[in-house]
């Protein structure tokens, strides 16, 4: 068996006449996380649905854990966990009932299904809400229950389809911690996201998907270096001289907006920021405000494709 838990070669898929995937090649090494990054309509969900046997590919070879998703769908289903964009839980049942039901559908046996449900409720901090109907859960709790449901059988491969889309910032951070915990347990994860920051924070490697084609792949560092690093933006106060400020700052890749009294410099790390601020302070220049700008998904796309992210109406 190869060392790749997920292997995709030449995958294509169309819905009616709309081409959604146009020849995808991807592989995910066992025990690592790949983030599939792309805007709405790029084909992320379609890829995940094919990997989890919910859709059949038109062409190409797709293997999960060495099993073919078409010919060996049952074997694939036994080794994967899927968390979709829509929390796939029974809203009328309680959290505990949902998890026990999943365990029994994985044929764990009633006793094991029950004990596994307790483990997951504790792991995902849902013990207090365990006996409430899932429809009373907040968005974040529902996602956690959904993720817990996909982990009932301890699958070695996990697909997380936009697990944090629509969550408030606090729930998003909770979710990130949960996902990091899964990584530590040795699972192989394919995560889709629209957020560069999320891919950056969690994944070992990132593949950028646009209009059904992988347009870039690599580590977060590699991708960012193609896009450009973080930048420090400074607004120079009215009392100080803009020209003087420019003089004391390092003059590589300096961007200046005179009307707004705004200067932007590359900032690879804390050292760059503190050096710039120290120089300004020494020169007695008043800084009205400062902010750090990270490359956004828009900028990644702008750099990689030369065009802005466009909202697509097609199925994603």
């Amino acid at each position: 068996m190869s060392d790749n838990a997920i292997e995709i070669k030449g995958l294509t898929k169309s819905f009616k006449k709309v081409k959604v995937l146009e020849g995808i090649n991807l592989s995910v090494e066992r025990g690592t996380m790949l983030a599939l990054l792309g805007p709405n309509g790029a084909g992320k969900t379609t890829t995940v649905r094919i990997l989890s046997t919910l859709l059949k590919p038109d062409a190409g070879e797709v293997r999960v854990n060495g099993f073919d998703v078409v010919g060996q769908a049952d074997e694939v289903r036994r080794t994967i966990g899927l968390t979709g964009q829509y929390a796939a839980v029974d809203e009328l049942l309680t959290g505990r009932e949902n998890l026990i039901m999943m365990g029994r559908l994985y044929h764990l046996g009633i006793a094991r299904a029950k004990s596994r449900a307790e483990e997951l409720l504790t792991q995902f901090d849902l013990t207090d809400a365990a006996d409430r109907a899932a429809k009373t859960y907040s968005g974040g709790m529902r996602r956690r229950l959904d993720l817990a449901a996909s982990l009932v059988a301890i699958p070695p491969v996990l697909f997380l389809d936009e697990p944090t889309t629509g969550l408030d910032p606090r729930s998003r951070i909770t979710m990130w911690n949960v996902i990091r915990g899964l990584m530590d347990s040795g699972a192989t994860i394919l995560l889709t996201t629209q957020y560069l920051e999320e891919a950056d924070k969690l994944a070992d490697r990132i593949a950028v998907l646009d209009h059904g084609v992988i347009i870039a792949e690599g580590t977060a560092k590699e991708l960012k270096s193609r896009v450009g690093n973080e930048r420090l933006e400074l607004i120079i106060g009215e009392r100080s001289n803009l020209e003087e400020a420019i003089k004391v700052l390092p003059n590589t890749d300096l961007q200046i907006h005179k009307e707004e009294r705004r200067i932007s410099i590359p900032a690879g790390g804390v050292a760059d920021v503190s050096a710039a601020l120290t120089s300004l302070q020494k020169a007695g220049i008043d800084v009205e405000s400062l902010s750090l700008h990270r490359p956004t998904l828009d900028e990644v796309f702008l750099t990689l494709t030369g065009k802005e992210v466009t909202e697509e109406e097609t199925k994603s």
Partner: peptide, 13 residues
């Protein structure tokens, strides 16, 4: 119309 059918279909059941 809810996601739950995806879950059932992706289970070995």
């Amino acid at each position: 119309t809810r996601g739950i059918i995806d879950r059932f279909k992706s289970l070995p059941m």
